[in-house]
């Protein structure tokens, strides 16, 4: 399992003039979710975010909530998801996205160690604030796992600087004030938040929350280094798109992004 490391991989791609595409799916949301991960990698993803289902996902809208319900009903646990991920043969990095209680319950060192063992090199915990992340941050860096932090439209420049300094892997720019979900239009807040953080960091900046289709992905990567696409993909998977449908959707985003570049 010599998957490339998250930050190294993404920085290299951006340095070579490329734009980043990071799809998200929920671990265990269907029987063939592992095949889907593989298919996304082949369709042009630069990294893949794997959601570990949590019972109370306060940063997620109805689509990802539904995926979590399905995954939990299928018996998915953090450990079962990680065990399955370990079996994948991928040449792009994986990032886990979940809520802090699952990590706190497992124990910081144990969880960080497990991520490293199964070849996950990044972690996003939206409800772990900058103020409360010290213990996890120590365990994650000791295990060589990047903790990706969020900056929001509401974040002040001073806070954004502190967040940029602590973030690893990439910087997750929340593209609008709201929870995950598809939106008809890209918010004007995307440009504002990207302009706010760009002078503060050399990390790749990826915009997530609300990026729903190829045109929007192209629009967002015109401003930032990359796009995270969650609900639009997860909805298709919930509707039964399967690995092939997922791959063709991600390929369409890839094409739109590269076309523009």
């Amino acid at each position: 399992m010599s998957r490339p490391h998250l930050e190294t991989h993404l920085r290299a791609k951006v340095a070579s003039g490329g734009k980043l595409l990071v799809p998200y799916l929920m671990a265990g949301q269907s029987d063939d979710w592992l095949d889907t991960v593989q298919a996304l990698a082949e369709a042009g993803a630069d990294a893949i975010e794997i959601g570990l289902p949590f019972s109370d996902p306060i940063m997620d809208g109805p689509v990802i909530q539904q995926a979590a319900v399905v995954a939990l009903e299928r018996g998915t646990t953090p450990e079962s998801a990680l065990r399955e991920l370990a079996t994948l043969d991928l040449d792009i990095p994986l990032v886990v996205m979940t809520y802090y209680n699952l990590i706190f319950r497992a124990g910081h060192d144990r969880f960080a160690g497990r991520l490293a063992e199964v070849g996950v090199s990044g972690c996003i915990l939206p409800d772990l604030s900058l103020e409360e992340m010290d213990d996890w941050g120590r365990a994650a860096s000791a295990a060589g796992v990047d903790t990706v932090l969020l900056v929001a439209p509401s974040t002040s420049v001073e806070r954004a600087q502190m967040i940029c300094d602590r973030s690893r892997g990439f910087l997750y720019a929340v593209g609008r004030m709201g929870v995950t979900g598809e939106r008809a239009e890209i918010s004007h807040q995307v440009a504002e938040v990207v302009e706010k953080v760009k002078p503060l960091t050399t990390l790749p900046v990826c915009v997530g929350v609300g990026v729903s289709n190829p045109a929007q992905a192209a629009q967002v990567t015109g401003l930032a280094d990359g796009a995270v696409v969650g609900s639009a993909l997860v909805r298709r998977l919930l509707e039964g798109a399967g690995p092939e449908g997922a791959a063709s959707f991600i390929a369409s985003l890839r094409h739109a992004i590269d076309q523009r570049g």
């Binding site: 604030s129 103020e131 409360e132 929001a152 709201g178």
Partner: peptide, 20 residues
């Protein structure tokens, strides 16, 4: 100052809510 009563409390919210 960070909202702890002993080992309990704190502020575990997504960044968009921290400023609020």
């Amino acid at each position: 100052s960070e909202g702890w009563f002993g080992d309990f409390g704190g502020r575990f919210v997504p960044e968009p809510l921290m400023p609020a």
